[in-house]
């Protein structure tokens, strides 16, 4: 599909969007912590993919390439003046639009008390995660939520694997401090 696009068949691009929009949107949502911001960043990511796809040289996997663009788009957005000065009222954890996909009902959820405690725990973690500096948050998301290997994270974020590990360690220490008593 990529080669076809590079050979001039741009009509194939909607298909490419359809194939990747879920992972891109989800990643943007995790990083941005807001549905509208995620929508904006995910769209912008595909605009960039459209513009740069002709330069994709197959040196890395396409997924890694997309992740890199999405992460950088989110980074730009986070560091933009508009984002910094905007009063964020929507928590990463909140789902005011009711947009989150229904989760599988597991056996542990059968007890309402357990379910509530788990939900509180999840909220506390997401809140702590949201309070981390943007770059550290992105590393945690890529490693712990997206389950990407260190080498790929290094590629996505444009840093050395050792740097990824040391920053992840720092991020986890910060997270641990912020979750003290909650877990």
């Amino acid at each position: 599909m990529i080669r076809e696009f590079q050979q001039g068949n741009v009509d194939i691009f909607p298909l490419l969007i359809q194939r990747h929009m879920q992972i891109v949107f989800n990643l943007c949502h995790r990083i941005m912590g807001d549905y509208d911001d995620a929508n904006d960043c995910a769209q912008e990511t595909f605009v960039k993919i459209y513009r740069h796809l002709h330069t994709f040289k197959f040196r890395s996997s396409f997924d890694t390439w997309i992740y890199r663009i999405a992460v950088n788009t989110c980074r730009n957005s986070i560091s933009s003046r508009h984002f910094k000065f905007r009063k964020k009222t929507v928590s990463l954890d909140n789902d005011p639009e009711g947009t989150r996909l229904p989760r599988q009902v597991g056996d542990r959820r059968s007890d309402p008390q357990v379910q509530m405690e788990r939900e509180e725990e999840r909220k506390a973690i997401m809140e702590a995660l949201r309070s981390l500096p943007g770059d550290l948050r992105i590393l945690i998301i890529l490693r712990d939520m997206e389950e990407r290997p260190y080498e790929e994270i290094a590629d996505i974020c444009g840093m050395k694997t050792g740097t990824v590990k040391s920053r992840l360690s720092r991020a986890r220490h910060m997270l641990r401090d912020r979750l003290r008593g909650a877990l």
Binding site: F13, N39, Q43, F46, Y50, T99, L101, D144
Partner: peptide, 29 residues
């Protein structure tokens, strides 16, 4: 604690893009 942490974030559901995502993105392009 680490296991509870992974258990909790594993329960973080996926968020689907809005229904008009494809059209809106193509318009933006």
């Amino acid at each position: 604690r680490v296991r509870r942490y992974y258990d909790a974030i594993g329960r973080e559901g996926a968020v689907p893009p809005p229904p008009d995502f494809l059209d809106a993105t193509m318009n933006r392009i």
